[in-house]
Design a protein around this nucleic acid. Structure first.
Length: 644
RNA sequence: GGCCCGGUAGUUCAAUGGAUAGAAUAGGAGUUUCCUAAACUCUAGAUACAAGUUCGAUUCUUGUCCGGGCUACCA
């Protein structure tokens, strides 16, 4: 080990070089700069070196040419690197530095632990809310992105030393739930999951669809009447007047098509709400809120079916929660903060009794927080829930994994919490993710293009099974082991596919590409892991319990060094992915590592290396690569098989 | 209308203001007496448009064009 080797084993060479460069800048030119400000990149393969410092930004202050500056900096850093550097070269303003092989070998000798990359606990608490389903429909592709992201973010925080609590808010009350219930009463003939053999969430989802179909049928003639300017029965005066007004507007000449569609939709909505079906639904909701026994019983029963169905799916995809909040239990919580806000002058009351907040100064709108009838709206409930969460688990960060269509809503929520002086307000973070589109465009339930989560998992496992059988490499597997493998591969492919893209971005889900097991995919990474395991088995490798000492004549081949360089960056990757709440960084890293391992594997023999020094070196590289692949995939929620 | 987000190879995705814009896949050409060929190697192919900021722009600013989202006394 070179003298003055970076003492902190968590300090990576790149960080060390940044600090060294900052020292050099100070020593040579008196430039004061923070190590974090120094630009460092991996040296492009066509140049000599491992890491490159970019000097352009200092040229003016140093009053030197980039070339001259590079020479001086390089010489200083080399002399003061305590033997961690062996050479440098300068091209334009780029200072290329070569790191000593001894550093890489020393790194490899000392990082044998299976949990390499895991950071010691920091005692900080983080809550991650994700999944948060409605109980009127089964989970679909969009939910899968949410679930995989949420689980992975939680895992990233754990690996970075945080205490994490995963939560979920179940949307189990409201008009939409009553729709399913009413349809079951009307058309269900007492159907149950047992009597139909259907998964509970799907059964209830079907009744929701049946309701919507029946509603559309009933509403159609009413809509036509309204759009023809005729009045319809069952409208109260105020709404009837509104309908008349809208109709008159619709007749105006020169109305833009967009506006026209908007008004038409509004009229259609009025008609829909005038149906007897909707009246019955509202009746039911009222009964539910009054605690009517029969209504509550049906509600309990049907929600029970849904939860059983969800549990099956969650189990299968690996989602879990420490705390589950039910909207039926939390939807009244926010009201008390309305009074508080009024007293503080954060909210104000209109003559009709409704309560509002003015966020126009912050570039948002005026938002309603309490209806004139005194009932709370969505945002009110969310304030209450946010507070409840904090009481349950006083966290520093409260992460909400929610689609980007709610960006505005989440901005409003955080702003209100801030104005109310809630202690957790600053810790709220909306992990906003983009929609999952199909190649044909957006998923639409009305057009039946929604990809069901259970179906998709089935399909992925089927393809995994077919592919595995075709290759015939699983001799000796029991039936149970085979099923386990298909599950690991199918779900691995799916998770990797959804997690490999930056969460913030909208993405396209192409069914054919997602079940591809080649290239930038989960199974590719899993396969690389299986290959390593196979080699380690052949070499009768045993997991070491202490640092190794590799032979003094150990030399690094380019492909070997490349792998070690990558392995050394793993903790930093985990740190960055967590800081940016972006699991795709881990997916990309895992793929790069697996890919480079495969090149290495094709070029060099492990068990039959040229000599014992090389054999030992390669076995150590294999072992650590396996750990890092496994840990990366663990962060993504993906298991790795010993054979496939 | 207002606010927000996006436009990169045929396709799906990368690129803290840094070197010749990377991958994967589809296409073309190869690799197996040797640890798993679900692999490897080679090849061809892209920054919507126009200005500006600067040593340097896919990245920052402005405008244009195209796509998406939000803008409920729904959740």
């Amino acid at each position: 080990m070179p003298a003055g080797f970076p003492k902190n084993t968590f300090m990576q060479i790149a960080q060390y070089l940044k600090a060294l460069a900052a020292q050099a800048l100070h020593a040579l030119y008196g430039i004061e700069t923070d190590a974090a400000q120094v630009t460092i990149n991996e040296t492009k393969p066509e140049f000599e070196g491992d890491y490159t410092i970019v000097l352009f930004q200092y040229v003016k202050q140093a009053r030197k040419s980039p070339e001259a500056m590079g020479q001086e900096m390089g010489a200083w850093m080399l002399a003061n690197s305590e033997e961690n550097l062996t050479a440098f070269n300068v091209i334009k303003g780029f200072l290329n530095l070569s790191v000593a092989d001894a550093y890489w070998i020393h790194f490899l000798e000392n990082h044998y632990q299976p949990d390499y990359g895991r950071h010691a606990g920091n005692g900080k608490k983080v809550m991650v809310e994700y999944s948060s389903p409605n109980t009127n429909k089964p989970l679909h592709l969009g939910h899968l992105r949410n679930n995989f992201l949420g689980w992975s973010i939680a895992e990233l925080y754990k690996w970075n030393g945080y205490d994490v609590r995963k939560t979920c808010i179940v949307n189990d009350r409201g008009v939409h739930i009553c729709k399913s219930m009413l349809a079951w009463q009307k058309f269900g003939n007492g159907a149950t999951p047992e009597s139909t053999g259907m998964k509970g969430d799907h059964l209830v989802g079907d009744f929701y669809v049946q309701f919507e179909n029946a509603l559309r049928k009933e509403a159609a003639p009413l809509q036509e009447q309204l759009l023809a300017g005729e009045s319809i029965a069952a409208l109260d005066e105020a709404i009837a007047a509104k309908a008349t007004l809208l109709f008159q507007k619709l007749q105006e000449a020169g109305l833009p098509a967009e506006k026209k569609a908007e008004i038409t939709d509004e009229l259609k909505d009025i008609a829909r709400n005038a149906t007897t079906l909707m009246q019955e639904v509202r009746q039911m909701l009222l009964k539910w809120e009054q605690g009517d026994e029969e209504t509550i019983n049906i509600w309990r029963m049907m929600n029970g079916w849904v939860y059983a169905g969800f549990d099956t799916t969650y189990n299968r995809i690996g989602s879990d929660f420490q705390t589950i909040y039910y909207e039926s239990e939390t939807y009244l919580l926010g009201k008390q903060y309305v009074d508080e806000g009024l007293a503080k002058g954060v909210f104000y009351k209109k003559e009709d009794g409704s309560v509002w907040i003015d966020l126009t100064a912050e570039g948002l709108d005026e938002k309603l927080v309490l209806r004139k009838d005194g009932t709370s709206v969505y945002i009110t409930q969310d304030i209450g829930l946010a507070k409840r969460k904090y009481e349950d688990y006083p966290m520093e960060q409260s992460i909400y994994v929610i689609g980007d269509e709610q960006n505005y809503h989440m901005d409003v929520l955080q702003l209100i919490c801030k104005k109310l002086g809630m202690p957790f307000a600053d810790g709220i973070h909306h992990l906003s993710y983009g929609m999952v589109d199909l190649p044909t465009g957006r998923m639409k339930s009305r057009e039946g293009t929604v990809v069901d989560a259970d179906d998709l998992c089935d399909e992925m496992e089927k393809v995994a099974a077919a592919k595995t059988e075709e290759l015939g490499k699983v001799e000796g597997f029991t039936q149970e082991e085979l099923q386990q493998l298909y599950h690991t591969l199918g779900l691995g492919a799916l998770k990797f596919f959804l997690l490999r893209v930056d969460p913030k971005k909208r993405m396209v889900f192409n069914p054919e590409e997602s079940i591809d097991f080649h290239g930038f995919t989960g199974p590719f990474v899993q396969y690389s892991f299986a290959r390593i395991q196979s080699a380690l088995r052949k070499a009768s490798w045993e997991q070491p319990t202490a640092p190794a000492t590799l032979a003094a004549d150990t030399v690094l081949q380019p492909l070997e060094k490349q792998l070690i360089v990558l392995l050394e960056q793993f903790p930093q990757v985990l740190h960055n992915a967590c800081a940016e709440m972006n699991p795709s960084l881990v997916a990309i890293y895992a793929f790069t590592l697996a890919s480079q391992f495969n090149s290495f594997y094709a070029r060099h023999s492990i068990t039959k290396a040229e000599n014992e020094s090389a054999r030992q070196l390669r076995l150590h590289i294999c072992a650590l690569t396996a750990h890092v692949i496994q840990n990366s995939m663990q962060v993504l929620g993906i298991a790795v098989p010993a054979r496939m």
